[in-house]
Each structure stands twice: as structure tokens, then as C-alpha cells.
Design a protein around this nucleic acid. Sequence first.
DNA 1: GTCGGTGATAGTTTTTTACTATCAAAAGAT
DNA 2: ATCTTTTGATAGTAAAAAACTATCACCGAC
Lengths: 312, 312
Amino acid sequence: MQSKLNVSLRQIAYFKAIGEVGSFRGAAERLGVTQPTLTAQIATLEESLGVKLFERTRSGATPTVAARELIPVCNRIQEEVQSFVDTAHGFTGGETGTYRIGVTPTLGPYLLPQVLPEIHERFQELRLFVREGVPAELNQDLRGAKHDLILSTQPIAEAGLEISPLFREPLKLVLPLDHRLANKKVINRTDLVGEEVLTIDEHHLYHRQVTELCQTLGATTRRDFEGTSLDTLRQMVVMGMGITFLPSLYVASEIRDSDPLRVTDVFGVNMYRDHALAWRSRSPARPLFRRLAQTIRELVPATGASDLRLLY
Amino acid sequence: MQSKLNVSLRQIAYFKAIGEVGSFRGAAERLGVTQPTLTAQIATLEESLGVKLFERTRSGATPTVAARELIPVCNRIQEEVQSFVDTAHGFTGGETGTYRIGVTPTLGPYLLPQVLPEIHERFQELRLFVREGVPAELNQDLRGAKHDLILSTQPIAEAGLEISPLFREPLKLVLPLDHRLANKKVINRTDLVGEEVLTIDEHHLYHRQVTELCQTLGATTRRDFEGTSLDTLRQMVVMGMGITFLPSLYVASEIRDSDPLRVTDVFGVNMYRDHALAWRSRSPARPLFRRLAQTIRELVPATGASDLRLLY
DNA sequence: GTCGGTGATAGTTTTTTACTATCAAAAGAT
DNA sequence: ATCTTTTGATAGTAAAAAACTATCACCGAC
């Protein structure tokens, strides 16, 4: 490390110029410095390296054998430095690079496929590296800089973060076709009293949200059977193991008309969850993330779920 | 060029260390400088590049997306600089690298094959790029730094050069077997009076040497037929077009017992030429060239020509 | 002989780097 | 709530490095 720091990029540029021009004075003129500067710097470099770089004659300076072999290395160093500068300049607009975005498994897979193509269209040099995690994990990893931003469900603990609300996603009641309520035209909240609702396992925020909803409806959550994903829940409902609530985006994305399921609202009950983008409030990429959130809000109405509501 | 010089190797080392350690203070301790030094240098680098490199938090410094992509470039720059230093250090002993040696066509091809294997044995990192030229050319190209050293025949103009004499090479009289002197046991100088001697063309120093020798012997040089090389001379003698003088090393190397030629000395006449290595007196590789000359002198007795005499 | 062109040298000035001392901010402990 | 600790930032000073000015030494051309 110390031996490297005894060489400066300036010395390398001076060395190379003298090699090309063939005299100290000529190179000094080309570089816009004085000849004694070059004499001193090359002498320092020769001392540092322990080899003579030029044979000084009255007619100029002739590269030694060592110098002739070092010139191509100089070129390579300068190329890499130029690459360093060029790469950095590529980030100047802030819309370049690979950002790590954490998403929840109950939202990410059903929203991103619908917005990413247009995001790519609008931010062509931007790459998003998508990783899934439950909201508690996402929050922690965002704080620990393992993610640059997260797409998650409210509530998101605000400390140290900037949170940009995106949209409100309703939850749909999903029944098997042979359920006693399947053919009821309008389902009220009283119809759900005593019903057993399937949910996914505890460490998902979604579990808590469904649990709280059941409490307000007088329904219960089954504790003996729990799904590991929304897909699992859907299959369990199809198989007659109970009813469940599924997010609107999931329904629009994954449930077909041919599925033996009834999907409905519950009259008089607002069931929903709110989603947001969040990033560290000191992140230098803040302006980019704000633009990204705005873009997602613009794209949400065009998704398959027609009942999403924008948040500001 | 200017944009490159706004980045220093120090800044790159500081940037990389902070990225690895994760805090300015930690990196300062590791590098043996103070933390405000790093703050100032990274701020300067960020300003120069136009991008933020770190997100500063209470718990340290987190690399931005730009920084994450620039770290591998830092590694490459440092590798190239290390290669620069290592390559230079390889020349420290002076016995490394490709030196351009100019040789005369009447000496080089007959001496070098006999000494180069041992030279390579003793100087294993040394490479010699051999080029042929007549002595006047060699001398000029040495002065103009197109050659690093020359193996040539005396006299060599001394100005600005260091000349290391190597050895004295006798010239042999070569006759066709059907020549009137071919069966004479001892040939005297008077036997050559009036003889026509073949020689090679005028721009070779060898031509002048043979011409002067003929003048002292009362012989003449043929002007209507001249060879272009020593091989050509030999063929012309075989074909009966005249007699010639050939250098001892050539005779040992190229003339077989089965050739229809008589090779002999001339009694009472010392015919020879002296060879030397020469280089520019200011060449930084002077010590190496002196060792090389000494090595050649040591190897000369083992050549096929047993009558060479060393010069000091 | 003089002239002109080269790199080297010595002293001074300017610029850059690094240090010292302190502040501001935020998280964690009590 | 206050206090402590740890982080990077800031301002001023000191030290080191780079660059400049002026001159010298040398040598080849004329």
C-alpha cells in the first residue's frame, strides 16, 4: 500500500508525455508546466521506483528499456481512471445503477409485473434488484442498508425513514362455491359472525391484519390450519377448508372466472390495507425514489385491480 | 486529461478503505490519518465526480449505489499501479528487459549462435533483439537510440560511446582446390602478388579491410564481380572465379572439410580484424553491458574458431 | 570563437494535504 | 427526562508537495 502511494497520477502523466514527445522541454510546453517541474517529478519517480526512466542527452530524453515496458502500463492506468470518472458521471442524473428493493410476498409479485415494464421505459438506466421479505424484515434490512428502499404495507415505523404512500388496496372475501353464503346476493358483516377464516402464518403482517378484521366482524381465525402464502390460502378455500380474505391485486392477478370461488365485498365494511414506498431519509437517491413513487402512483390505475385508491 | 488529474490515488485508497470499513473514523485509524482528512478528501472527490459516494449516518458511512459500482474500478486501478511498480522493480538489477543489439552481417550470424545459449543461462531475464546492419549504419543507429548496443568491428568512432573490446579474429586465405597455390605447402606474401581477390560490395567495412590488405600484399581486388555476403564469396571461390579472405569464425562455422577449398594462413602476414561491443556512454544500462562484454570474452575461447585472441 | 538548445540546480512561491480543536446530531443508557 | 458516547462536519493552522523563476553546465553547429 505504501509503495503504491509513492506514485502519483501526475507523475505517470508526466512520464508518459516525455516518452511521447522525447524531451523534457517539449513535454513541459505541451503539459503547460515548467521544465524544472518535470525534472523534479521524474527524478522523484525514478528514485521511488529504483530505475532510470530516461537517458538524458543534449538532444532530449531517450526512454530506457524499463520505460519502454512501463509506458503500456501507464496507458492502462489512465484508461482505468477514465473508466472510474466515466462510471461516476453516469450516476450524475441519479437514475442509473442497481438499487435493491425489498418487497412483501403478499404485494410484490402481484404489483411489480404490472408496473415494471413502464418503469423500465421511463428509467432506462435503472435496475431494480428485487428481494422478498416480511415487513418486519424489510424494515430492519432497510435500516441496515441491506435494501435501498422497500415496497411494503403500512404501518411502517417512520423513524429515520421517508415514507411515500402509494395506494389503498381493498381485501376481498373469498368463498368456495358450495359455501352457505356463496349464493347470497349481498353479504353483511353479521353474516360472518362465527365463521372460521383461514390466514397465513403469524410472522406475516397479513396475519395480524386479518386477525384484527375478524375480531371486528365476530369471526375467528383458524389456528390449526395456516397457509404459507396467498396461493396456499386460495387452494385451501377451493378445497372447502374455510373462507379467507385476499388482497384485491392478488384476486385480479391470480383468480380466474373458472375458479370455483366467489369473490365479494362485505356490505358496510371497509376492508383494506395501505401500501407505501420507504427509504432512509438520508439516502442520496431520495429524489429518484420520490420520482419512482410518483410513477407507481400513476401506473396503479392501469392495473387489473380496478378498485385501488391512490394515496398522497 | 484534466478530468483525470482531479482524481488522486490517495483519494481512491481513502474511498476504498471507507467502503470496506464502513466508517470514516474506522478507516482513518486503519490508514493512519485523521478523520477530518478523510472527510475533506472524500468531499473533494464527490465534488469532482459530481456524485455522492457515501450516505453519512450516526453509525457510519454507507456506500451509495454509485460507490458500489466504483469499488471494483478502484481495485483495478490499484492492481495496475501495483503492476507498474512491480514491473519497474523487475528492472532494478538491470538484467531484465528487451535490449536491441545491432550486429554486422559478417560477424553476428557466426558468433551469436555460439554464445547466446550461455548468455541466456547467465542472464535469464534478459532478452536481446538482434538486428543486422553494416557498421556505419550500426554506429548511427546507436547514436540515435535505435539500438541500445552494437556488436561491431573496429575502428568504431568513440565520441559519446563506451567501447569494450572483445577479441581479435584472423582472416583466412581461401583458395579453390584447382588453384596454382592450392598444393603449395606454405604460402608467402610474395605468392599473392598480382592475384585477384574477390570481396563483398563497397558499403561493407569488410570491403575496405580486404582492399587495404590486398594493397599491402600487392594483390588486387576484382571490381567486376563482388559478392553480397560471405556465403556468396565462398560460392564464387568454389566456382573458380578467384580467391578471397574469409573471417575465421565464418570458416569454422560454414566451411566443411568436404568443401573443394583450401583454407590457409599466409606466412609472415598478420591478417585480422578486432571486434567490440559499444553503447552510449550515458546509457543507464552501462553496468549490464560491461558484464555482457565480459561474458562474451569468457565464452569466445569455446567457439569453433580456435585462433581468436581476447582483447581487453 | 559565439550561439542555441538541452536538462540540472537552487531558492522562492503557491497549492495541496494533513492535523488540531471543536461542534452538531443522534442513538443508547440511566 | 438527562447524560454519555460515537459519528461526521467545520474552521483554522501547520506541514508537505508541487510549481515557478532564475541561472548554470554542457555540447553540437556554425
